[in-house]
């Protein structure tokens, strides 16, 4: 090892290659080289995933990787295709998405409203914020036994768990968003006769929006995690039901389709928030586009 480190550069190693490139950089070669370079650079990040997929497929086909451990990539594609054709994929996907967004609407809505209240009113902050901060320390999944006692294992339990999980990120970021609105702007607006509801709509709420959207992002992360846990608990439909049933029949390809569906939902929701940011925070990005 120490010999390799201290030995002079061999023709094949990185240092001498870099030196060769500098030495041979003539204008003509440089031009063609850079076109190929750009093209190659765009494809470069795909090399490792493609190699991994290929190795995985080869390992599966050769029998080195038994399907009960991990199904072949092409088997997963086939399973997904079968689920699409039968209509099951869409049905379970929409049930799971509806579940997630119901929880988000309930918990996020309450968190947003309470955050606005404690952010805008000193009285509400004194009265409520301490309580909320105490409850925040409880991970929502730790409430699982209680949730089963209170709601059974039906839809209410799942909605409650998700709502509890998304409440805090939205509450905290809304509260801080309102609190961090520039007091100079508030003073200016008041001096121009903007008060009460108008002050809220034109100054406080738009000022808090960037922070609220950060809260929404965090809430989505919590939402998907809770959904997966809640659906594993017991479900008659949804992606969780699909994967649990598949596991019992050792259909690992369907289990993997389920995991990919969760990823797809998460990505879609994240993209939606990005679009929302682009619309609502246009005033922030105005400089960059000009």
């Amino acid at each position: 090892m120490s010999v390799a480190v201290t030995s002079p550069a061999k023709p094949g190693d990185a240092t001498s290659k870099a030196m060769d490139q500098t030495r041979h950089r003539t204008p003509g070669i440089g031009t063609t080289g850079s076109t190929v370079g750009n093209f190659g650079r765009a494809l470069l990040p795909l090399v490792v995933p493609v190699l991994l997929l290929a190795a995985w497929q080869v390992a599966s086909v050769s029998g080195a990787l038994p399907p009960r451990i991990l199904p072949a990539p092409l088997a997963v594609v086939a399973a997904a295709k079968a689920l699409i054709v039968s209509g099951d994929l869409w049905r379970h996907l929409s049930v799971s998405a509806a579940r997630a967004f119901l929880g988000l609407a309930v918990g996020g809505g309450i968190g947003f409203a309470l955050g606005l209240l404690t952010g805008a009113s000193k009285w509400a902050e004194t009265f409520l914020d301490g309580t909320v901060q105490m409850l925040r320390a409880i991970p929502n999944l730790a409430l699982l036994p209680f949730v089963i006692i209170w709601f059974g294992i039906g839809e209410e339990a799942k909605t409650f768990l998700i709502a509890f999980g998304v409440f805090f990120p939205l509450y905290l970021n809304t509260y801080h968003g309102i609190r961090s609105v520039d007091p100079d702007l508030v003073e200016m607006a008041r001096a121009y006769g903007v008060r009460g509801a108008a002050l809220f709509w034109h100054v406080l709420l738009p000022g808090a929006t960037p922070s609220v959207l950060v809260g929404l992002r965090f809430a989505l992360g919590s939402m998907w995690l809770t959904l997966i846990a809640a659906e594993a608990l017991a479900a008659q439909s949804g992606i969780g039901y699909l994967t649990t049933t598949a596991r019992e029949f050792m259909q690992t390809d369907v289990v993997l389709v389920g995991a990919l569906l969760y990823a797809l939902l998460g990505k879609a929701a994240d993209t939606a928030v990005r679009l929302l940011e682009r619309v609502l925070l246009r005033w922030q990005t105005a400089r960059a586009s000009n």
């Binding site: 702007l185 607006a189 034109h202 100054v203 738009p206 929006t209 005033w283 922030q284």
Partner: peptide, 8 residues
């Protein structure tokens, strides 16, 4: 400072 509302 101008104190313009940046979102308007």
């Amino acid at each position: 400072d101008a104190r313009l509302l940046p979102w308007k």
